[in-house]
């Protein structure tokens, strides 16, 4: 699975939650007021289920979820860590 497809899936999920909006991959979704703790939890569950990863506590930083690009990078980083580990 390429990084583009990871981003596309993340983008689709975010837009699915807020169908009235079109989200660019570098757009700060926090600045749009979309994030609350429930959505953050849904987002983490989506990432863990879709990409078969576990997001460790230390990666649960706001900057890792601010944009689709940041989330894509998080997925790749967690995957590579899992492979190394």
């Amino acid at each position: 699975m390429t990084e583009i497809s990871v981003a596309a899936q993340l983008q689709s999920f975010v837009e699915g939650r807020f169908p009235q909006s079109s989200i660019a991959t570098d757009q700060d979704i926090f600045s749009l007021g979309y994030i609350n703790s429930l959505f953050a939890m849904e987002l983490v569950m989506f990432i863990e289920r879709t990409f078969s990863v576990t997001v460790p506590n230390e990666e649960l930083r706001i900057d890792n979820f601010r944009t689709v690009e940041a989330m894509s990078a998080l997925v790749e980083r967690v995957r590579s860590t899992a492979l190394v580990g």
């Binding site: 703790s37 953050a40 506590n57 230390e58 649960l60 930083r61």
Partner: peptide, 17 residues
């Protein structure tokens, strides 16, 4: 228990869920 930053709300939300 868990993260102390923005994600701390997830601990609460997940537990309440």
């Amino acid at each position: 228990l868990g993260p102390s930053s923005f994600a701390s709300g997830m601990v609460l939300s997940g537990t309440l869920d």
